[in-house]
Design a protein around this nucleic acid. Structure first.
Lengths: 191, 191
DNA sequence: CTACTATTAGTACCTAGTGCTAGTAGCGGG
DNA sequence: CCCGCTACTAGCACTAGGTACTAATAGTAG
């Protein structure tokens, strides 16, 4: 019934990573061992206690000044924004964003960063992407930092056009033209 | 030296808003009153204790984080594939795919499903998206099942064009034309 | 003087731990 | 068969940052 130590510890690590809000007691019950064993495991794995874990998660958000902006659903970190004008975000390419076999960032992450930024820059209750044209100029590699710059290029009653250009260093790697619906009533289009 | 009650309470509120990580003890020293007074004030103002405050901040971040990450797995489930010909995948729209405020699926998930499918249908070691044109016809709602159908429409030495159409029931909700690079050598383009 | 508010003090209890000591169960080697 | 080792368990004292409650005191208004 009980797992070997190594197995338990690696699962423990995973569990806590997935849900840092879990107590030692919960874990002890899940793994069918004593609380003490869980604590020994945490020591060995250098995993801090529940409250410290929660605190560090909270500190991360809190330190981000951008948290006050209505940006709770953004891919990448917004570092500058002028509503209905322009915005800049950065996105660090990590393991989970790339193809395992060649370390190239998957396209939808670049799209997601650009599209989120296009949504964020629009100063309206609702912003949905109606259509877009994308160009992927150069593969982005693991570890690179993508800087996306959005500019509102035109605006009428219902629609706004946002141009997003993403760079790695000085190199243009991606460009997207987003045609966005605005306003409070949703008719067509997505996001 | 000591402030009147009302004044102290409004400053207390402000202090805690600015820095939710402050303890009652700290506050008591700052306002030069007893810890009990601070606690009575918090009760009257319905401000939760330190740990609860930290926890709620952490929960907010954590939910945002897990929301932006799971774009990684192969998006949608491939239910039929004929290499270099066509493919079909399904994608169920869940909580984590939609905007909280209106339950509409975020565009990059539809893009990700379509783009993954375009990559999958190509019978080559490497397939990267060079460019694409997207149309979002209708918002997709939480709980809906999106069926994406990919068709290879043209093919030459280096490039393949894949048309993907996504449906909810009989309704076309999304269309994407993907211009893909193939082969083992990577030159330009992403994914 | 009494009533009332604001404040302070102190106690028991809570959670989710740390840090420590001690004991046991199972296994391999000599 | 005992020795030593690892893994696990158990218990106790203590901690922070509280809750919930009772009681006492100071000041002020009627």
């Amino acid at each position: 019934m009980k797992l070997p130590k190594k197995e338990r510890q690696s699962r423990l690590k995973q569990k806590i990573f997935e849900n840092p809000f879990v107590t030692d007691d919960d874990l002890a019950k899940q793994f069918n061992v004593s609380v003490q064993t869980i604590r020994l495991d945490r020591m060995e794995l250098s995993i801090p206690e529940l409250r410290e874990r929660i605190k560090s998660v909270a500190e991360k958000t809190f330190e981000d000044e951008v948290r006050s902006l209505p940006i709770d659903e953004i891919i990448g970190e917004i570092i500058d924004i002028e509503l209905d004008e322009s915005a800049i975000s950065i996105f660090d390419v990590k393991d989970e964003h790339v193809f395992q076999r060649n370390g190239i960032a998957r396209g939808h992450h670049l799209f997601a960063q650009a599209n989120s930024l296009a949504v964020a820059v629009i100063d309206d209750e609702l912003a949905l992407t109606a259509s877009s044209q994308l160009q992927f100029y150069k593969p982005v590699q693991l570890g690179e930092r993508v800087v996306a710059k959005a500019k509102v290029s035109s605006k009428d009653q219902r629609r706004t056009t946002v141009e997003v250009q993403s760079y790695v260093g000085q190199t243009l790697v991606f460009k997207g033209d987003f045609n966005m619906y605005r306003s409070t009533t949703q008719l067509k289009g997505d996001e």
